[in-house]
C-alpha cells in the first residue's frame, strides 16, 4: 500500500542551514545541509526539501554544490526550491542531482514555465509550491507570492488545477494562515485542493505536534505527504517518533 510521506524541509543560505538545528552539536557538522540530510535519511524521512533562500550569485553557485554533495551521499529523493525562475535554473538543479525542482512566484508570473519544464523534463520532477491565505472578500484561499508579501487575487484552488493541467507532478501547499503557528495544518485548505486535483498534494505550514500529521492525513485533510521544518530541527519530536505514532494509529507509513 502506498504510504503517506513525511518530509523534513530546511532553509539554506550561502550553503549553510539557516536555523540552528539542535541535534547537530558537533561544530564541524552544525549547519551543514548534507550532514543534516543524512541524519534525516537515517531517521526514516521519506523525502527532503531543500529551500535556497540565498539571493546572490555566489550563493547560488554554492547551492549547486550542496545539491551535488547531497545527491552523492543521500539515497532518498529530494526537492530543491527557492529562486527558481527559468527553465535553465531547473536544468542546472536537475543536472546537479536534484530529483525534483519546486517553483513558486515565477510559476505564477510565467505559468508557461510549468508547461515548458514539464514537457522537457517530465512531470515527475516539477513541483509547484503554492502559498495560500484565506481571503474573506474572495471567500476563497488566495495565492500569495514573494514569500507571502504580495497578494495576487488568484484562487489557490483554481491555480492548483491550472498547475496540474500544465503538467505539474505535485503541489506543495503552504497555508500562510497556519505557517509558523504550530497549531496544525490548514485541514480545509488542504482537503479542498487535494480533492480538486489528481496529482499528489504535500501539506505544509503549522505542524506543531505529532497529532497534526495524523489529522492532515485523515479524511479531514486528505494530504498525500506532509512537510515540516522546526518541529524536527529543534528535536521537539523526530521523524521516527512521528512515523511510529502514525503507524500505531493505522496510517500507512514506511
Amino acid at each position: 500500500m502506498l504510504t503517506k510521506r513525511i518530509i523534513p524541509c530546511f532553509d539554506i543560505k550561502n550553503g549553510r542551514v539557516v536555523k540552528n538545528v539542535s541535534f547537530l552539536t558537533n561544530e564541524r557538522d552544525a549547519g551543514d545541509p548534507v550532514e543534516l540530510a543524512k541524519i534525516y535519511e537515517e531517521q526514516g524521512a521519506d523525502e527532503l526539501v531543500l529551500l535556497d533562500i540565498t539571493a546572490t550569485n555566489e550563493g547560488r553557485a554554492t547551492m549547486l554544490d550542496i545539491v551535488r554533495r547531497t545527491a552523492d551521499q543521500v539515497f532518498i529523493p529530494f526537492t530543491v526550491g527557492g529562486g527558481v525562475k527559468t527553465v535553465d535554473d531547473i536544468r542546472e538543479l536537475l543536472l546537479a542531482g536534484a530529483d525534483k525542482v519546486s517553483m513558486n512566484t515565477a510559476a505564477v508570473k510565467t505559468p508557461q514555465l510549468i508547461t515548458e519544464s514539464a514537457q522537457k523534463y517530465g512531470s515527475q520532477c516539477i513541483v509547484v509550491a503554492i502559498d495560500g491565505k484565506w481571503n474573506v472578500e474572495m471567500q476563497d484561499w488566495e495565492v500569495m507570492i514573494n514569500a507571502g508579501k504580495v497578494s495576487t487575487g488568484i484562487s489557490a484552488i483554481k491555480w492548483a488545477r491550472e498547475c496540474e493541467e500544465r503538467g505539474a507532478g505535485e503541489i506543495l501547499l503552504t497555508s500562510f494562515d497556519q505557517d509558523g503557528q504550530k497549531n496544525g495544518f490548514d485541514l480545509d485548505f488542504t482537503r479542498r485542493v487535494s480533492e480538486s486535483v489528481r496529482i499528489p498534494v504535500i501539506a505544509s505550514g503549522g505542524a506543531g505536534e505529532k497529532s497534526h500529521f495524523y489529522d492532515v492525513f485523515s479524511e479531514q485533510g486528505k494530504a498525500d505527504a506532509a512537510l515540516a521544518a522546526s518541529i524536527f530541527h529543534f528535536k521537539e519530536t523526530t521523524v521516527t517518533e512521528v512515523k511510529n505514532y502514525l503507524r500505531e494509529r493505522g496510517v500507512s507509513i514506511r
Binding site: 500500500m1 510521506r5 515527475q124
Partner: peptide, 28 residues
Amino acid sequence: FKIPHIGWNDLTLHQESPLLQGVEAGDY
C-alpha cells in the same frame, strides 16, 4: 486515482532471485 504513482510502496515477492538477496516481503 492519482497518477503518477509517487511515493513509497511495499513489495510482494514472487520468486527467489539473486537480485533479492536480503530483501524481504513488505520492504518499501
